[in-house]
Simulated scan of single mutants.
Amino acid sequence: MAESFPEVQGGGSLILAWQVKNKKVLVVGGGEVAAGRILNLLNADASVTVISPTSGLNPEVAHRVQNNQVTHLDKKFEPSDLDDPDITMVLTAIDDPEASSQIWKLCKEKRLPANIADVPPECDFYFGSVHRDGPLQIMVSTNGNGPKMANIVRRRIASNLPPNMGDAIKKVGKLRKKLREVAPQPEEGPKRMQWMSKVCVQWSLEDLCDMSEEDMEMLLQSYAPDQVPSLVDVRGPWEFDGSFGWACVV
């Protein structure tokens, strides 16, 4: 019998969560588009350097500069600006197609990943439309075909999410950390993952949001026998006997 595998759908891009914390990123330009790029980078804890004459800074970028959220070089871009070995990526957002293409070529020579605003063929990566709720990030990409459509789709998805999804994810993150303290051994990895999966499936979003530190401690007692009691059972007048389940305390 022939096995069934997913169909290959070419023409897409590899969507990744790029970790740029404390990494140096160069932004050329200081207008509205640059402001959005800069905010995305700061949200990811990147170390941002902006190259733009002060006269070209829009109010938001000027605010970032004044509050020392970014490093500002008050000048126009020069090829030597790419000589810094600490630069990990380059973003351009300037109204000069010829200069942008030149920066792209220089980045290719130095093997620096770059994004040239509004020029998809000259981009190693794209910026999608992102929904953010605490630790939750959802990105919608049209692979450069329609940024406005990405925004519309992202809003549609966000409107169907519970408003407290981010809080639930934070609670799950705390529970995972506590579970690693309870069962730190590497060989426990598969069981930890399966047990956490069962918690996320069997508990409602409201339960996860309402889960307290005390609830976590009680719930973790059910890890060893590989059980997942409900939040009602965790909070009820029950006592875990360590063998086959929960017993009522009388």
Results as ranks from 00 to 15, higher is better:
188 E>T: 10
221 Q>G: 05
216 M>T: 06
211 M>T: 12
209 C>A: 10
197 S>E: 13
190 P>R: 03
212 S>I: 06
225 P>G: 05
217 E>I: 11
211 M>G: 06
203 W>L: 04
220 L>E: 07
198 K>M: 12
206 E>F: 04
198 K>S: 13
191 K>I: 01
217 E>Y: 06
210 D>T: 14
224 A>C: 10
223 Y>S: 02
204 S>V: 03
215 D>A: 05
201 V>F: 11
220 L>K: 03
202 Q>S: 11
216 M>Y: 02
225 P>I: 02
192 R>D: 01
224 A>S: 14
205 L>F: 10
192 R>I: 02
200 C>A: 14
191 K>G: 01
208 L>S: 03
192 R>H: 03
206 E>N: 14
223 Y>I: 04
190 P>A: 06
214 E>I: 11
213 E>M: 09
201 V>E: 15
191 K>Q: 07
196 M>P: 00
193 M>G: 08
220 L>P: 10
217 E>D: 15
211 M>H: 03
222 S>T: 12
196 M>Y: 00
211 M>R: 03
221 Q>V: 01
188 E>Q: 14
212 S>W: 08
225 P>T: 03
204 S>N: 12
190 P>D: 05
208 L>N: 03
217 E>F: 08
224 A>T: 09
191 K>E: 02
207 D>Q: 12
204 S>E: 14
221 Q>D: 07
189 G>D: 11
217 E>V: 11
222 S>N: 08
207 D>Y: 07
217 E>W: 07
188 E>V: 06
197 S>D: 12
196 M>K: 01
199 V>D: 04
211 M>F: 06
205 L>W: 14
213 E>H: 12
201 V>Y: 13
215 D>V: 06
225 P>M: 00
196 M>A: 04
217 E>P: 09
190 P>E: 05
197 S>G: 13
212 S>P: 14
213 E>L: 12
213 E>D: 15
194 Q>L: 12
225 P>E: 02
204 S>T: 15
205 L>E: 15
198 K>G: 09
204 S>G: 14
202 Q>M: 10
207 D>M: 07
221 Q>Y: 01
195 W>N: 01
200 C>Q: 14
190 P>T: 01
218 M>R: 13
206 E>L: 09
197 S>K: 13
220 L>N: 06
203 W>I: 00
210 D>I: 05
222 S>W: 02
223 Y>P: 04
213 E>C: 11
212 S>A: 11
193 M>D: 13
198 K>E: 14
203 W>R: 00
213 E>W: 07
206 E>A: 11
219 L>R: 01
209 C>L: 04
216 M>V: 05
197 S>T: 09
193 M>C: 07
195 W>R: 00
215 D>C: 06
216 M>I: 05
205 L>Q: 15
215 D>N: 11
196 M>F: 05
219 L>S: 03
206 E>V: 05
